[in-house]
């Protein structure tokens, strides 16, 4: 403003006011417009319509025996589906919630106690924890062990030790029959 005033040698104070108004109005409209124009660029990086539409995965549970687990792909990431044994269910339910970093009862993390379905991504920095195969290390609580930074999860997928802040996430899912589940 000071610059333009110096250069233009206004003929009258009246013109100066008019000019200041026009400068401020044009600048405001221009800046607001440029800001809005950035949105389509930013929003183009959000998930596209076809990506959003591919958000369900059907899983057949019939072949999974108690104690076994399978990993299915949901939205490009692994989901752990584990058929828990009676002991695993019991140990998950027996935990004193006050011991937990992210207190959640087992009951609110499952729809059917036999089936634990969690997103298989460590809540620390996104690695896939071990524990799906019988030969994998499962940590001190018999759930999962993340090899990247040593987080340990229990048989309800809750964080028990290590740097991860949260329990393994539970995706939205529903049982479409006794032996099939739809994730997403």
């Amino acid at each position: 403003m000071a610059d333009t005033a110096k250069n233009a040698q206004p003929s009258a104070a009246d013109g100066q006011t008019r000019r200041d108004f026009l400068l401020q109005a044009a600048s405001t409209v221009g800046v607001v417009g440029t800001g809005i124009a950035l949105w389509p660029f930013v929003h183009s990086m959000n998930p596209a319509a076809d990506t959003l539409a591919l958000s369900t995965t059907d899983v057949d549970l019939s072949a999974i025996k108690p104690g076994q687990a399978i990993t299915v792909v949901w939205r490009g990431a692994p989901v752990f589906v584990r058929s828990r044994t009676a002991e695993e269910i019991a140990s998950a339910q027996a935990v004193n919630l006050s011991e937990l970093r992210d207190p959640q009862s087992d009951a609110i993390r499952v729809k059917n106690p036999q089936w634990l379905i969690v997103v298989g991504i460590c809540t620390h920095l996104g690695c896939v924890p071990l524990g799906q195969k019988p030969t994998d290390p499962r940590g001190e609580w018999g759930g999962w062990f993340c090899p990247c930074h040593g987080s340990q999860y229990d048989t309800s997928g809750r964080i028990r030790k290590g740097p991860a802040p949260k329990n393994l996430a539970v995706p939205a899912y529903q049982f479409t029959s006794d032996t099939t589940v739809r994730i997403g």
Binding site: T4, A8, Q9, P10, S11, G15, R18, R19, L22, L23, A25, A26, V29, G30, G33
Partner: peptide
């Protein structure tokens, strides 16, 4: 249209001398 009209008016104001 609004922006261009404002810029036109501003341009005339700046150039009038």
């Amino acid at each position: 249209a609004l922006l261009t009209a404002l810029l036109f008016a501003l341009k005339r104001q700046i150039w009038k001398d």
